[in-house]
């Protein structure tokens, strides 16, 4: 099945060509090709089970941790094949960060949650450098003012929205190039969701963001390009305003007008 719309981006950070994913015998992603442009927010939408989260997890090889999962095709980051056997997956994941559906702060203090990544990658040589990284990351995630007086408190004691921003700060702390977000607002209330969406706008200046979302309004609000997945196929991709106003594929139109999904 060929994808409708423009899969290429002018200045791609990541390119994916003929990507297939199998879970055992199940063919979860079928021949998907798409570019992810520099400093753009790419939204991936589609009904449950369409493969959008699976595809997202290919981009930092998190699928490696799932037994029986097989990925074929090429995915590159800045021209480098990320499935190259010589590539160190640990370094890849430092470059492609991820924020999960459910906020998952470590059972550590707020400070240690952020400092965890920089520590294991040796990004800070002194304590004050580490303090600086923690402060900048929290500031970028818009959480600094709320937690600066209680950095030693457990991260799990924060509210759901704060926890999710903590997880974003944690991902930023290892200075990635790309941030993958897997339905980052589905466990949050509308106010916390609005804060995260504002944050995504700000982060776009420095990072490339791929976001999986169930909410078409959210996709319309935060993204520049939108990709529509259905049953493992990438049906249509294009500029967000065009997808939501003049979809070219009938399935896309049915989905965004709420006829299924």
């Amino acid at each position: 099945m060929t994808t409708v719309g423009e899969i290429r981006a002018a200045n791609p950070r990541m390119t994916c060509r003929q990507v297939n994913v199998y879970y055992g015998d199940k063919h979860a992603i079928k021949n998907v090709s798409i570019d992810i442009g520099r400093n753009e927010v790419l939204a991936m939408i589609g009904p449950s089970g369409c493969g959008k989260s699976t595809f997202l997890r290919c981009l930092n090889r998190m699928n490696d941790t799932i037994e029986g999962c097989r990925v074929t095709g090429t995915i590159t980051l800045d021209g480098q094949d990320i499935y190259d056997p010589d590539l160190d997956v640990v370094l890849l994941r430092a470059q492609v960060g991820m924020v999960f559906q459910k906020p998952n702060p470590f059972p550590k203090s707020i400070y240690d949650n952020i400092a965890y990544g920089p520590k294991i990658h040796g990004l800070a040589r002194t304590r004050s450098e580490l303090d600086q990284i923690v402060e900048t990351s929290l500031q970028k995630a818009g959480l600094w003012d709320e937690v600066k007086d209680r950095l030693k408190h457990p991260g799990t004691g924060l509210s759901g929205g704060q926890q999710q921003r903590l997880c974003i700060a944690r991902a930023i702390a290892v200075s990635p190039e790309v941030i993958l977000m897997d339905e980052p607002c589905s466990a949050l209330d509308p106010i916390a969701t609005a804060r995260i969406e504002d944050l995504i706008h700000e982060l776009r200046e420095q990072y490339t963001i791929v976001i999986v979302t169930h909410s078409m309004q959210q996709a319309a609000r935060v993204s520049q390009r939108t990709a529509f997945f259905h049953m493992g196929d990438l049906i249509e991709v294009g500029p967000t305003d065009r997808i939501f106003t003049r979809p070219r594929h009938s399935l896309t139109e049915d989905y965004i007008t709420g006829r299924f999904g």
Binding site: N60, M62, T65, V90, L91, L92, R93, A94, G97, M98, F100, K102, N104, P105, F106, P107, Y116, G117, I120, H121, C167, R170, A171, V174
Partner: peptide, 22 residues
Amino acid sequence: PQDLRDGSLALGATRSETIRQV
């Protein structure tokens, strides 16, 4: 929870770092 392991691995931690520290 698998969430915590995923969170650590997604930061580029190795498996042993994840086990020891998370």
